[in-house]
């Protein structure tokens, strides 16, 4: 995670961002601390990336890249505003002994924000932020099979706003964000989906973090909560309202480091 000292809505690169909306930095900081404490309480060990002045979205570490064991594939951001984050992400992983494997070419891929592992497969979104041509290269680099899903709803611009893996069989999904081919791909991939309605999707319910059997969510409608509890999950809701102003929630504020994509 990355502390939110320099967080703010300083530019508009998604439909949630409006520069005239003020961020309450103190509130943001306490919301972020609340999420960190909650994740730690569930058993997560948290490592920190130093914030950088002028990079307000560095706080959304999910987009830093793809982690696969000790392999790190840096993101290549669509927007110049976020491209300046990459050297700081790479330096962090490099300093910790990760092998840094760059994507070939010039096409974009926005890291774990657009690629989530599910049951041995990497599900990856494309069109709004990531280019589908990177998916083949990602598969070659990580040796994981990749399934591509086209993101068609501008308000759900990253895959992690539409998909949250829970375990080997279950995931929270927001099909509203996908085209009909993407819906079929996920249908074939996920045996037991928890389907979000439109309101829950736009409330970023899918942008949740799972630590063990605890699901940390930005909001949770009762029906979703009941289903998760029936499956044996505990639900913790975090108010991350200040970060929603920039189009991000719980998942966006974290990057999982305990990911092994390739299974032999």
């Amino acid at each position: 995670m990355c502390t939110p000292e320099h967080f703010g809505v300083l530019y508009e690169i998604n439909s949630w961002m409006h520069t005239e909306v003020r961020v309450d930095l103190d509130l943001a900081r306490s919301q972020w601390e609340g999420l960190r404490a909650g994740l730690a309480a569930s058993g997560a060990a948290i490592e920190l990336l130093d914030p950088v002045e002028g990079l307000p979205d560095l706080v959304f570490t999910a987009n830093a890249g793809i982690v696969n064991g000790m392999q790190y594939v840096p993101a290549r951001f669509r927007h110049p505003e976020r491209q300046r984050e990459v050297p700081y992400d790479v330096a962090w992983f490099d300093a910790r002994g990760y092998t840094v494997d760059e994507l070939p070419g010039v096409a974009s891929h926005e890291g774990a924000g657009d690629a989530l592992p599910f049951a041995g497969t990497l599900l990856s979104g494309y069109r709004s932020r990531s280019d589908v041509v990177t998916h083949g290269a990602l598969s070659t680099l990580t040796r994981a099979p990749v399934r591509s899903v086209e993101l068609v709803e501008p308000r759900l611009y990253h895959l992690d706003l539409t998909f949250c893996p829970l375990d080997e069989r279950r995931a929270i999904i927001a099909p509203l964000g996908w085209d009909r081919y993407g819906c079929k791909v996920v249908e074939a991939l996920v045996p037991e989906p928890l389907v979000l309605d439109d309101d829950a999707a736009f409330a970023f319910c899918a942008n949740s973090v799972v630590v063990g059997s605890t699901v940390h969510m930005p909001s949770c409608p009762p029906a979703v909560g009941r289903r998760l509890e029936a499956w044996g999950f505990d639900v913790v809701v975090h108010d991350v309202g200040e970060f929603l102003k920039a189009g991000g929630a719980c998942r966006c504020l974290t990057l999982a480091l305990d990911v092994e994509l390739h299974r032999t």
Partner: peptide, 14 residues
Amino acid sequence: VEGHIIDSLILAKL
């Protein structure tokens, strides 16, 4: 087109 174009239904979509 190259990639997981069969499983991802990309070829069918094209």
